[in-house]
Design a protein around this nucleic acid. Structure first.
Length: 401
DNA sequence: TGGTATT
């Protein structure tokens, strides 16, 4: 499997690196983000853009808009608050960090086990001490691929009831209408935060259905009044515009049945296919006599492998040794390299105490054996800048835990 | 009727 690693600087700027097998997905994802361009950028430049909609831009910009508080969207379902903190903590000191979780499952009378306690809603907030670090986090981590997701990092708008429930569901769109045209149609009613057109998974053709999230609910209301049952320019049929279903208003019944359907589900996708191809479970079984129909860690946490000396297994996941990193390597490059392969819980660049430069190696902890093994198989021997990486499970011999 | 966007 070929993996192209281009130069570190451009990786850090674009945050768009991904292993080859997922190239198609990445392009599709990035296109979405790019066609979101203007609105994404506006969001990223939150304070100044927000100001443009206010009557006294300078004052409201400086008083209301935080330059340290970020919202992070499209996080992998299984990413924890600690992992979020670890990822964003690699940029700078964090004042606070919160992964937003579902309230129904989180406070349920039903069960308080980790598996059922408050499912991640896929977004969170990171508040930095220093505004410069917040800006750096946007530049470095926005667009980062983690598992099957491409995260979005932008300034959080000041929390307010007026920005809630501002998401619209639009149907009956001409199949030829692009996301840009959809935005053009709706932008007359306010500032668009996100837009999306749903496409057929196989053909890629528009399903004529989309979403528009406005900055404020009143803007969404005006758009319904103005566009519902109207024909867009050139269209033969009128469109339907209404408030989108709010996923958080799903019944607890639906949520619980969802949990039952896939209590331990990771995002398999291409990873699972890769894993199957490599027959990694069998390899593990042959090498160590360990059954890993699921990731060993997932069976009962730390104890399932207690006392079994397996390289790379550190008790909290699978520790991977990454050798031949450049002196200026930092944690974010490790997140970018390993994140697309699966659940990464921690990354660490080992630095010289005096110079603070990377000593040439680092560690990555991944939750699932299969994903770690695919990452190693893919990244070992590949060129990062002018260096060829050596990637393996951490051995006890080389470095003590 | 989303790749769960305001704690």
């Amino acid at each position: 499997m070929a993996v192209r690693l281009c130069d570190v600087a451009s990786l850090l700027r674009s945050g768009s690196w991904a292993p080859e097998p997922w190239t198609g997905q990445v392009i599709a994802t990035m296109e979405t983000q790019m066609s979101n361009g203007p609105t994404c950028n506006n969001t990223s430049n939150g304070p100044s853009t927000m100001s443009n909609n206010c009557s006294s831009p300078v004052e409201s910009g400086s008083i209301e808009d935080s330059k340290t508080n970020l919202i992070v969207n499209y996080l992998p379902q299984n990413m924890t608050q600690e992992e979020l903190k670890s990822l964003f903590g690699s940029i700078g000191e964090i004042e606070s960090c919160k992964l937003v979780r579902d309230k129904i499952t989180g406070t349920s009378w039903y069960s308080r086990t980790d598996e059922l306690a408050g499912q991640s809603l896929g977004y969170g907030f990171v508040n930095y001490v220093d505004p410069k670090d917040a800006e750096k986090a946007i530049n470095t981590l926005n667009g980062l691929r983690l598992q099957t997701k491409t995260i979005k990092v932008s300034y959080a708008r000041p929390s307010s009831a007026s920005i809630r429930d501002a998401n619209l569901y639009v149907s009956g769109l001409p199949k030829t209408m692009t996301q840009k045209e959809l935005e053009q149609l709706f932008s007359q009613y306010g500032r668009i935060i996100t837009s999306r057109i749903l496409v057929d998974q196989v053909t890629g053709v528009s399903r004529g259905v989309g979403f528009i999230r406005f900055d404020r609910r009143v803007e969404a209301e005006e758009a319904i009044k103005g566009l519902n049952c109207q024909k867009p320019p050139g269209a033969t049929e009128p469109i339907t515009v209404k408030f989108a279903n709010n996923p958080s208003q799903k019944t607890s019944q639906a949520l619980l049945s969802q949990l039952y359907q896939s209590p331990n589900r990771r995002y398999p996708g291409p990873l699972a296919q890769q894993a199957q191809r490599f027959r990694l479970d069998n390899l593990l079984n042959m090498a160590y006599g360990v059954k890993s129909r699921f990731s060993p860690m997932a069976i009962d946490g730390v104890t399932s492998l207690a006392g079994i000396n397996i390289p790379g297994h550190a008790g909290t996941g699978w520790c991977i040794f990454v050798y031949n990193l450049a002196p200026d390597a930092d944690e974010s490059i490790l997140w970018q390299m390993f994140g697309p392969f699966g659940a990464v819980t921690n990354v660490k660049v080992i630095r010289d105490f005096n110079t603070n430069k990377c000593k040439g190696f680092g560690f990555v902890t991944m939750t699932n054996y299969d994903e770690a093994a695919v990452a190693i198989a893919s990244l070992n021997g590949y060129r990062l800048g002018d260096r060829v990486l050596q990637v393996s499970f951490k051995t006890n011999k080389t470095h003590k835990a």
